Computed example of a mutant assay.
Amino acid sequence: MSDSVARPSSASEARESKGFFGRIVQFLREVLLELKKVTYPTGPELLRFTIVVMVFVAFMMLLVTGLDFVFGKGAMWLFGGSPGK
């Protein structure tokens, strides 16, 4: 039978052999490599995304305001009284 002892991979061995600051430097290198893979939106895409977000936020504000008004009126009708007392 073959010996099936689990051996740590070379990446984990390299991670363990580096010191504290070596691991920080390695992390920063990996962050920079990942940032190179990012695709940034073009100007027109950025404008379109911004408009979509602003319209959505305005819609949600109107929805929450409307629901607040309806539930406030319902609470006043149910429990009586007038607002401000």
Rank of each mutant, 00 (worst) to 15 (best):
M1C: 08
S2I: 12
D3C: 12
S4R: 15
S4G: 08
A6M: 11
A6Y: 12
R7H: 07
R7P: 01
R7K: 09
A11L: 15
S12H: 08
A14M: 10
A14F: 07
A14H: 05
R15W: 14
E16G: 06
E16D: 11
S17W: 04
K18G: 04
G19E: 00
R23C: 02
R23D: 01
V25E: 11
V25N: 05
Q26Y: 10
F27I: 10
L28V: 12
L28E: 11
L28R: 09
L28S: 06
R29A: 08
R29G: 09
R29Y: 07
E30T: 10
L32G: 06
L32R: 14
L33I: 09
L33D: 09
L33E: 14
L33V: 08
L33Y: 10
L35K: 03
L35D: 05
K36I: 08
K37N: 11
K37C: 04
K37L: 09
K37M: 07
K37R: 13
V38G: 02
V38Y: 03
T39H: 12
Y40K: 15
P41Q: 00
T42D: 05
T42F: 04
T42I: 02
G43C: 07
G43V: 12
P44Y: 02
E45G: 02
E45C: 05
L46Y: 10
L47A: 13
L47K: 15
L47G: 11
R48F: 08
T50G: 08
T50L: 03
T50F: 08
I51A: 09
I51S: 04
I51R: 15
I51K: 14
I51L: 15
I51N: 07
I51W: 11
V52N: 10
V52R: 14
V53D: 07
V53E: 08
V53G: 06
M54P: 03
V55L: 07
V55N: 02
F56H: 09
F56N: 10
V57C: 07
V57I: 15
A58K: 05
A58L: 13
A58N: 03
F59L: 15
F59Q: 11
M60A: 06
M61Q: 10
M61D: 04
V64A: 01
V64E: 01
T65S: 08
G66Y: 01
L67D: 00
L67N: 01
L67A: 03
L67I: 06
D68C: 12
F69Q: 10
F69H: 05
V70T: 01
F71R: 00
F71S: 02
F71V: 06
G72Y: 01
G72I: 00
K73H: 08
K73T: 05
G74S: 07
G74Y: 03
G74H: 03
A75H: 11
M76D: 09
M76Y: 07
W77I: 13
L78K: 11
L78A: 14
L78W: 07
F79S: 08
G80T: 03
G80A: 02
G81C: 01
S82M: 05
P83M: 07
G84F: 00
G84S: 04
K85E: 07
K85W: 06
